[in-house]
């Protein structure tokens, strides 16, 4: 610990206190409020919730089959998108990490670029591709694969494609970071000692890339679970995901307590992956330092 004068100590406390207070008021406190309101009842008033405390909302959520199905559908779609992102993202990250430095920086630029373009507009772009008169259907008809437009838009498949497309860069970047750090001699050493290319991959590359795989999968899965825009724009009216249910309960039904309960349930599902991710990142930061 450095030696500090009185004035400097005061500065120091200020630098800690300002962001600390901000985060506490605008991030931590709201969660306590969500928890409180999830236990309230909806009433016709401003604001639309009572001061009472009951577990009614949670009991309702747990007993209503529709919500269970929605949670399940969200998990399945998010997981499927995560798997496809990994299958696509791993070879891509590997290819980028193994290309020459000049090419590599350009390939990375192309991965990062979509980040900076509005998410909403990128999802919107798929609407033009997937609808009955869209590019994909026109192409398939022109190729003679089908003669009637295929219903792709407003299906779970469209959501799945949209999730994969939107979150693919989140998979590639952490994977790239670990693969790029990896010493290529390690794979050569395994080959030299008699491992086949496949064996060298599973013995060396895969275990060493695991922190990147974990980070990538969680960075895709967690936000995909709560996704609102993609199911709204690409999915059908009955193809609900949990983020959309939450938003609709709040926005259209004005049932704030139920929306809060839905949010709490979503958090409960996500708390394990989020903690897992944070620990993974902390370990990574440590080993990189």
């Amino acid at each position: 610990m450095e030696l500090l004068g009185r004035r400097d100590l005061w500065w120091r406390r200020l630098i800690v206190a300002i962001p600390y207070l901000w985060l506490f008021v605008f991030f931590a406190l709201p969660f306590l409020i969500i928890l409180k309101i999830s236990l309230a009842d909806p009433i016709m008033a401003r604001p639309p919730f009572s001061e009472t405390v009951s577990a009614d909302n949670f009991i309702f959520l747990l007993n209503d089959k529709l919500y269970a199905i929605t949670y399940l559908r969200s998990i399945v779609l998010a997981a499927a998108a995560t798997v496809l992102c990994l299958l696509l993202g791993f070879p891509m990250a590997y290819g980028i990490a193994r290309s020459t430095p000049a090419v590599r920086s350009f390939l990375l630029l192309l991965i990062v670029l979509p980040f900076w373009i509005s998410f909403l507009l990128r999802v919107y772009a798929w609407m033009g591709l997937l609808n009955n008169y869209g590019v994909v259907n026109n192409l398939l008809i022109w190729l003679g694969v089908i003669d009637q437009p295929l219903q792709i838009m407003y299906t779970d498949f469209a959501i799945f494609l949209g999730l994969t497309y939107s979150y693919l860069p989140f998979m590639i970047l952490p994977l790239y970071a670990t693969l790029e750090r990896m010493d290529l001699d390690l794979v050569d050493a395994a080959l030299d000692l008699g491992a086949s290319r496949t064996a060298a991959f599973w013995d060396i590359t895969w275990p060493l890339a695991r922190p990147g795989v974990v980070a990538g999968c969680l960075l895709v899965f967690i936000p995909a679970m709560g996704e609102y825009v993609i199911p709204y724009l690409l999915g059908g009216p009955e193809a609900m995901m949990i983020g959309r249910v939450l938003f609709d309960e709040f926005y259209f039904n004005r049932d704030w307590p139920l929306a809060s309960a839905v949010a709490i349930m979503l958090l409960v599902i996500l708390v394990v992956p989020i903690v897992f991710l944070q620990r993974n990142q902390a370990r990574e930061a440590e080993s990189a330092a």
């Binding site: 010493d183 001699d185 390690l186 050569d188 050493a189 395994a190 080959l191 030299d192 000692l193 008699g194 491992a195 086949s196 013995d203 060396i204 275990p207 060493l208």
Partner: peptide, 18 residues
């Protein structure tokens, strides 16, 4: 390489860290 009667000590040592 995996079928040659030759082994190598790498400059970076390439000791498997895990």
């Amino acid at each position: 390489p995996y079928e040659r009667p030759v082994n190598m000590m790498f400059q970076s040592y390439a000791v498997f860290p895990h």
